[in-house]
Computed example of a mutant assay.
Amino acid sequence: MVDRGPAPRRGRPPVSDEQRRRQRLAISRHAVRLFSEQGLAATSGEQIARASGVSERTLWRHFPHKESCVEPLLTKTIDAFRTVLHAWPPDVDLAEHLRSAYQPVLNSPSATDVEAVLAVIRLTHDEPALRAAYLVLRERAEDTLAEVLSARTGVPSDALPVRVEAAAMNAALKVATDDLIHETAESGITPDALLRHREHLADAISFVTRRAPGDGRD
């Protein structure tokens, strides 16, 4: 008998984590555009799926409900802040590091994702369901910041000083983002607006974390 080897795999090849991440982000961008253009209530899952070029089944496999479609874009702001904290040199003041290295949205070569993120946050002011999703992500961000500070300092992430520092940083990021939303409501994103946002965030961080854990100051 001839050994024919294993039977060929049938069906679609498995989706990698990176492919899944990219598809979720693409869906998120289309969902945010539709929410901004026609409102949350008037936007259906079918419309989001059609705009994204996927089936409704695929849409609901990625997201439990349409409001959660905003999460991948909003998460990019948290990832951006976490990434810049990870890269914070031990001998550099955090505010100065933010002025030189911070970008409001991670891995976005254009202002498109920044505009989309700000559009989502604007919508949270009038859409309770989106506001709930935003608040959940902000709470997760606080936990993430505590983990970053813990890794930097060696102090447990659930220690009171680290938790307070993480909460202060999270609040500073929110205030600076709210200022950017207000400034760009009519004029849109400009290089000067992003520069001022970076300065506002650095100033806010400097104000609330004059002695960040592990910053090396006496």
Score class of each variant (00 low, 15 high):
1 M>T: 12
1 M>W: 09
3 D>Q: 03
3 D>C: 02
4 R>T: 13
4 R>M: 15
6 P>F: 03
9 R>D: 10
9 R>P: 11
13 P>H: 03
13 P>T: 05
15 V>I: 14
15 V>E: 13
16 S>A: 00
16 S>K: 02
16 S>C: 01
16 S>G: 02
19 Q>E: 15
24 R>M: 10
25 L>W: 00
30 H>Y: 01
31 A>V: 02
31 A>M: 06
39 G>C: 04
43 T>C: 10
43 T>P: 02
44 S>F: 04
45 G>M: 06
45 G>Y: 12
48 I>S: 00
50 R>H: 14
53 G>F: 02
57 R>H: 08
60 W>Q: 07
61 R>K: 09
64 P>I: 05
64 P>S: 14
65 H>G: 08
68 S>R: 15
69 C>L: 06
74 L>G: 12
76 K>C: 13
76 K>M: 13
77 T>Q: 14
78 I>G: 10
79 D>L: 14
81 F>K: 05
85 L>H: 09
89 P>L: 08
90 P>Q: 15
91 D>Q: 15
95 A>M: 08
95 A>R: 02
97 H>T: 07
97 H>R: 09
98 L>V: 06
101 A>G: 12
105 V>A: 01
109 P>S: 09
109 P>L: 07
109 P>I: 06
110 S>L: 08
110 S>C: 07
112 T>E: 15
113 D>Q: 11
113 D>C: 10
116 A>W: 00
118 L>V: 07
120 V>D: 08
120 V>Q: 08
122 R>H: 05
123 L>R: 13
128 P>K: 12
128 P>T: 08
131 R>K: 13
133 A>R: 06
133 A>I: 09
137 L>G: 12
137 L>K: 03
139 E>N: 04
142 E>G: 15
146 A>N: 07
147 E>P: 03
149 L>G: 10
152 R>F: 09
153 T>Y: 01
153 T>R: 04
154 G>D: 10
155 V>N: 03
158 D>C: 05
158 D>F: 05
161 P>M: 04
165 E>Q: 13
167 A>M: 09
169 M>F: 13
169 M>T: 00
174 K>Q: 08
174 K>S: 05
177 T>I: 14
178 D>H: 04
183 E>C: 06
184 T>C: 05
184 T>R: 09
184 T>A: 07
184 T>Y: 12
185 A>S: 14
187 S>I: 14
187 S>L: 09
191 P>G: 09
192 D>V: 14
195 L>Y: 10
195 L>I: 03
196 R>Y: 03
198 R>K: 11
201 L>H: 07
202 A>W: 01
203 D>M: 13
207 F>E: 08
209 T>G: 07
210 R>V: 11
215 D>K: 12
217 R>A: 13
217 R>S: 14
